[in-house]
Design a protein around this nucleic acid. Structure first.
Lengths: 343, 343
DNA sequence: AATAAAAATGCAAACGTTTTCATTTTAAGG
DNA sequence: CCTTAAAATGAAAACGTTTGCATTTTTATT
């Protein structure tokens, strides 16, 4: 029986391949990492040997030298929600293009959980990490900084962010939808937003909405500003309750999820959208374009953000460190659909 | 300057902690992996040293001995879709409970891509992997088998599956919704399903539907069996086209996504659901319960599947290998909501 | 208090690669 | 065909842990 160092574990190692190809392990390593430095005939032999043996390299072992693991982390508030799924998919696919893989975790909108997650990712030696938003605990940020791990903040654009960011201008998104309603003549407007604590995206959007109210000399009181979780059912329930006493002509929702709930609530109550009530969302998730009526909203290019984030992170650890353009803004698009009309 | 072997890289290593705590690296290692074998005072010293230094262990280095990396893979057809997001989130969270992390990738319903993905995951030394469905290319399955990597098939229950599986009886799901329509008196039924090639879930559901047709002596012809991708917009478009010439009283959809599209199509055409058309889906995704009308469907416990899958995989590499109950069936629930009515 | 057994710790050899440096082979130039 | 430079390969030392074995310390027993 030939010399098969690792065979008892079931898998051949680089030395097995080397032996079979009659070269040194070093050359096999080069074959995989830097193919053009090995002569063609040798290359062929190694390739054949590797195939015959079904060799799969152990990047982990390699990473002990490399300092790079080929794995990049992504932390999102939640996976189980249309909001981020497009982003996640795009990020993962683009990483695959770069021969990297994604390690993902969700903190469920509890920023404190991020510290444990970051630690766990760090223990697995990630080469970089993408974090949603700008609000983060100092502890994990320090862990990352101390280790010089490339970090990007995604989703929200902030020209003053200390770490590189890739995202859309959420203030502007909020401004756009609110202004749209005012332009249609609405003056009695209800605003339904998620909790803005530890959530810069929602906070910025709300600021944008408020800026329009202010410019119109209107007040946004407690009575017409409601808080609602990221859940269609909750949004629907809440809306059905407030619509009994509330005579608004329009609703601004902090995101499309809430909008869906509001629209369903109207349908349940027999209200006509947009004749009886105009509704706007932010995000343009799957379904928003096709529901009836179509939801007027702002399209945030989640896919593009995911791709840019992946590219940026990979570039950060391939080149030196910080990316040329530290703050990358992606364009939004206002989508005027059937859920809004003149008052 | 103290001896800091790895410090130039920015991060302290186990020997730095050992030096500071005045013990050997071996003891520090034990402190982390098997705390109860180290005496309390020593433990305290190590803990303090590790904290002072901000030490984060390098599991990768440890995995060179361990054979376990603490990382588990999940391959799904798609991330960007309500179908699997609940599953993914549950799987990831449960793994975190077990101090593992998830490596995830999507093949976009192209089974051939699974081979590259599996290879990539294997190179990262996953401890186990969960695959959606039973239809898989032989190549990746062999790679996994050769290496003795625990594998579970999730989503679909199949009592004869050669690998462990955790899922629901999709045949029964199809049977349930079709039978429901027949029980309501429907005889002219359109069936809209995703492509069943390389998709055992859809295939089994369709078989279930067909079994009802057969038992009712009805035929399911080309004319009333349509294929449609997993996309609300496509489903809506298709439905709007076929509803012009088609006088069915009910539609069976292969999944809730398609159902949503069908319902929106009806609303766009001014048809009343369920009076003019009854609609059933399968899955019970986010939104199905709250849309108007609520969608009659079958609830597949995605969360439970995710948790069970995580637990099973972890158990598989903690105990010996194969789980006690190789085939785990999770219960479904038929959800009768507003989208169906007597003809 | 002495001895045996058990518990805690240390030493040093792995784990499977990559990489530096040295050596051999090939190609180029005259 | 010989010399020199360049290209290809090999030998061996890392990388940061874990772990088997040996050694020391503690606890229990008489």
């Amino acid at each position: 029986m030939a010399k098969r160092s690792r065979s008892f574990k079931g898998a051949p190692g680089i030395v097995d391949v080397a032996a079979r190809a009659e070269v040194s392990p070093a050359t096999v390593s080069r074959f995989f990492n830097n193919p053009d430095v090995v002569k063609t005939p040798t290359r062929k032999r190694i390739e054949k040997a590797a195939n015959d043996l079904g060799y799969i390299r152990d990047r982990m072992a390699g990473s002990m030298h490399n300092r790079f693991s080929g794995t990049i982390g992504l932390i999102v508030p939640t996976i189980d929600n249309a909001i981020f799924s497009e982003l996640i998919e795009a990020f993962a696919s683009q990483l695959l293009e770069h021969d990297r893989t994604m390690l993902i975790a969700a903190h469920g909108y509890e920023l404190k959980r991020e510290i444990g997650i970051v630690r766990s990712l760090l223990e697995r030696r990630i080469d970089g990490i993408a974090l949603v938003g700008q609000d983060h605990d100092a502890v994990p940020m320090n862990m990352l900084a101390q280790r010089n791990i490339p970090v990007v903040s995604i989703w929200n654009f902030d020209a003053n962010s200390s770490i590189p960011c890739i995202g859309a201008d959420n203030f502007e998104a909020g401004r756009l939808v609110a202004q749209h309603l005012f332009d249609l003549g609405h003056r009695n407007i209800t605003v339904i937003f998620p909790d803005t604590n530890h959530n810069d995206r929602a906070r910025d959007r709300l600021s944008g909405v408020k800026s329009v109210f202010k410019s119109q000399q209107l007040s946004l009181s407690h009575k017409n500003l409601m808080t609602c979780p990221y859940d269609i059912g909750e949004a629907k329930k809440l809306t059905m309750k407030i619509l009994q006493s509330n005579r608004s002509t329009a609703v601004v929702c902090g995101n499309d999820i809430i909008s869906h709930g509001v629209i369903f609530a109207c349908q349940a109550l027999g209200l006509n959208v947009p004749q009886d009530l105009s509704i706007v969302g932010i995000g343009d998730f799957a379904g928003s374009a096709h529901m009836e009526p179509g939801l007027t909203t702002v399209r945030l290019p989640a896919k593009r953000i995911g791709i840019l984030a992946a590219d940026t992170l990979v570039a950060m650890n391939e080149t030196g460190i910080p990316p040329k353009n530290k703050h990358q803004e992606v364009e939004m698009r206002f989508m005027h659909r059937g859920s809004t009309a003149v008052v």
